[in-house]
């Protein structure tokens, strides 16, 4: 309830008017779970923009995957992340990789949820595409029937880069590719995913950022 209102009254108007999206390939977004939406990560806004792409009715089933250590720093933030944003928390400590880390994600997929995942792991330098971590391939090898939809953002790192709290409006490109299916091997799948993002990035042709 509160979460639905938060997205309807705050996030969607903010994203649609203050920022403004140019969306290409909206038809490729999943219309039902289970599904995994994979995006590049430059800004806290990525999560909100990704959520705002879904129709209100589907929001209840869409959950961003986020690092527990970052969002559970204090009780207020924890409440906000879980109840309002609706994250599925994961433990990203190296020791836990392959073990318990994926359990909450598998459970969510089994419940027909749409997971929003940022395989770069953290936000990184603004408007730079970092290297993808292979957690997504581990996840998919256990649920091979789940479709993976790549989404490329360009411009959000300019609106609100890491470490900045003043939002500066820019129009943002959101390019969505057709779903990828599990191809049987982790390295091969990671290569396919990287290729899909390279294609989206070529299509978006982001402007050089940072002078010169």
């Amino acid at each position: 309830m509160l979460r639905g209102l938060f997205y309807l009254l705050l996030v969607k108007p903010l994203v649609l008017f203050l920022i403004g999206l140019n969306v290409r390939g909206r038809q490729y977004l999943p219309s039902a779970g289970p599904a995994i939406v994979v995006a590049n990560h430059n800004s806290h806004l990525d999560t909100l923009v990704l959520m705002s792409l879904f129709p209100q009715a589907l929001l209840a089933d869409a959950h961003p995957v986020a690092a527990a250590d970052y969002f559970f720093r204090n009780r207020c933030l924890k409440w906000f992340a879980l109840r309002i944003i609706g994250i599925v928390p994961i433990d990203r400590r190296p020791a836990a990789v392959g073990g318990d880390t994926l359990t909450p994600l598998l459970r969510a997929l089994d419940h027909g949820k749409i997971l929003l995942l940022f395989p770069e792991g953290s936000r990184g330098a603004p408007e730079q595409l970092g290297k993808f971590k292979s957690g997504i391939a581990h996840l998919l090898s256990k649920r091979p029937e789940v479709p993976v939809i790549p989404v490329f953002f360009s411009g959000l790192g300019k609106c609100l880069p890491k470490g900045e709290f003043v939002l500066v409006p820019f129009f943002v490109d959101v390019f969505i590719a057709p779903a990828l299916a599990w191809n049987g091997s982790r390295p091969a799948f990671m290569a396919e995913l990287a290729h899909a993002f390279a294609l989206l990035r070529d299509e978006a042709q982001p402007l050089p950022f940072d002078g010169a």
Binding site: K158, V166, V168, P169, F170, F209, D210, G211
Partner: peptide
């Protein structure tokens, strides 16, 4: 103005200036 700023190259250092 937003459309204009989105078209032109801007410097990262100018974030607050653009605000």
């Amino acid at each position: 103005f937003k459309e204009y700023l989105s078209l032109i190259p801007t410097r990262r250092a100018d974030h607050r200036v653009l605000f």
